[in-house]
């Protein structure tokens, strides 16, 4: 278990082995991102579309002078799209050296999880589950912890035609 945490933790685990995750909702499911990856959370604003991109790339926004691409996570996970409402937010995350915005239904809270309550992703055979680092249990909630690098890394290189 330690190795799992060490591997994906960017340094927020203190000596007691507690990690913090920002949780958010997508299509009534709960997901978590390491809190240190999160730069800020902002309301959904107008997005400038980029031509000829996969459907999940909504476009780019101006984040105080930086042009930041926006990914709709519902589209990324092939979930049915939803109307954007007042709860719809953009979570701005750091992926490697890059900054990206994720559109999610709503943010919930910050979850403190001890190492012992993170479970390994169940092996689903042929299905690639690498984008989930583990499942965190908190009370009766089950939060899927996302591996942002794996999930979004492919967006940075142009698809080979």
């Amino acid at each position: 278990m330690t190795t799992l945490i060490d591997k994906y933790d960017v340094g927020n685990s203190n000596s007691s082995g507690i990690s913090q995750f920002l949780t958010f909702a997508l299509n009534d499911q709960e997901f978590g991102i390491e809190i240190l990856r999160v730069q800020e959370i902002k309301n959904f604003t107008r997005v400038t579309p980029i031509p000829n991109m996969p459907e999940c790339i909504k476009g780019v926004i101006n984040l105080r002078g930086t042009v930041v691409p926006i990914v709709d996570l519902r589209k990324k996970f092939a979930m049915p799209s939803a109307e954007y409402n007042q709860f719809t937010v953009i979570i701005v995350v750091n992926v490697g050296t890059k900054i990206m915005g994720l559109v999610v239904d709503a943010v919930s809270d910050v979850l403190n999880v001890g190492e012992e309550s993170i479970e390994k992703t169940p092996d689903l055979g042929a299905i690639d589950t690498s984008f989930i680092t583990g499942l965190a249990k908190s009370g009766d909630r089950l939060v899927a912890l996302l591996n942002i690098e794996y999930l979004l890394g492919d967006q940075f290189s142009a698809p080979s035609v």
Binding site: I50, V68, K98, F156
Partner: peptide, 17 residues
Amino acid sequence: NLETNFRKVPGVAGATI
């Protein structure tokens, strides 16, 4: 530059605000 946070996009030289 779009590559700063994203990647090269065909037909697009960059962005501006």
